[in-house]
């Protein structure tokens, strides 16, 4: 079976003025369907760059990047846009909800972009919001929602197109501890129940404790790529009793 994402000798350079900065140096890795992967490391280690490349929002300088077996450098901007829309979901550190749209409209936005917006889309978005415990807030605009609620809306938005891979860049960085834990458990549950692949960058040790694979980056190199021990996975399962609204839904 082919990998969902495969990187071979990926290198990424940035230019700050005339100064070249190499963010990623010879990255080799593959992500399989259904994995729950954390990319971690200190600031400037290349975590976000790695996520951006996997999310097809940035271009690598050299090497080969295959997404579902397709070499992404051969894709046009439009094709990459279609791929992001249909196969990828994004969760951002700052939630990045559209402030003028309601929670419901934010969730249906990827379907609107896809051109598949119908009445059934609204029902699907509503049920997703209920599933994530914010069904009572679907007509609220983002500024009326707490950070945790906004991130749930962002998760619903990422899930609405049933993507193969969700890229989450520091998803808990702007959340308090309680909400961070809830979001981590929620993503893990989605990963288990819907078999959605998650790759996220994080500094958050609580999140690292709950993943089944950790990729450690240092100065643009992968220094460690290991599966988390079973204990951590079990830990996630025991967290089912955690008090958050979605436990009935998933």
């Amino acid at each position: 079976m082919s990998s969902l994402v495969e990187m071979k000798n990926i290198k990424k350079d940035y230019y700050l003025g005339e100064t070249r900065i190499t963010a990623l140096k010879s990255i080799n890795l593959s992500i399989q369907n259904g994995e729950f992967v954390a990319v971690w490391g200190p600031s400037g280690s290349g975590k976000s760059t790695l996520c951006n490349l996997m999310g097809l929002t940035d271009n690598h300088t050299s090497g080969t990047l295959l997404f579902q077996g397709t070499e992404v450098t051969s894709l046009s901007d439009n094709q990459k846009s279609e791929m992001r829309n249909q196969h990828l979901g994004f969760i951002f550190q700052n939630f990045n909800l559209i402030p003028v749209l309601t929670a419901l409209d934010n969730v249906t936005l990827p379907l609107l972009i896809k051109g598949e917006f119908e009445k059934s889309s609204i029902n699907a978005a509503k049920s997703l919001l209920f599933e994530l415990g914010i069904g009572d807030y679907f007509l609220h605009r983002p500024h009326k929602l707490s950070g945790g609620q906004q991130q749930r809306v962002a998760i619903a938005r990422a899930l609405i197109t049933a993507p193969d891979l969700i890229i989450a860049d520091e998803p808990t960085a702007n959340l308090d501890s309680e909400n961070a834990l809830k979001i981590i458990d929620l993503m893990r549950k989605i990963n288990i129940s819907k078999k959605t692949t998650f790759v996220f960058s994080t500094h958050d040790q609580r999140l690292l404790d709950r993943v089944n694979r950790q990729i450690n980056l240092q100065d643009g190199f992968i220094t460690n790529d290991s599966k988390a021990d079973k204990k951590n996975n079990d830990n996630v399962e025991t967290n089912k009793n955690t008090n958050f609204e979605t436990k009935q839904m998933l």
């Binding site: 439009n78 846009s81 990828l88 951002f92 990045n96 402030p99 972009i113 896809k114």
Partner: peptide, 15 residues
């Protein structure tokens, strides 16, 4: 930032 978000969600340039 919103434009970046819309592009990340798959909206094409012409969109």
């Amino acid at each position: 930032r919103e434009i970046g978000t819309l592009r990340a969600l798959g909206l094409k340039r012409k969109g």
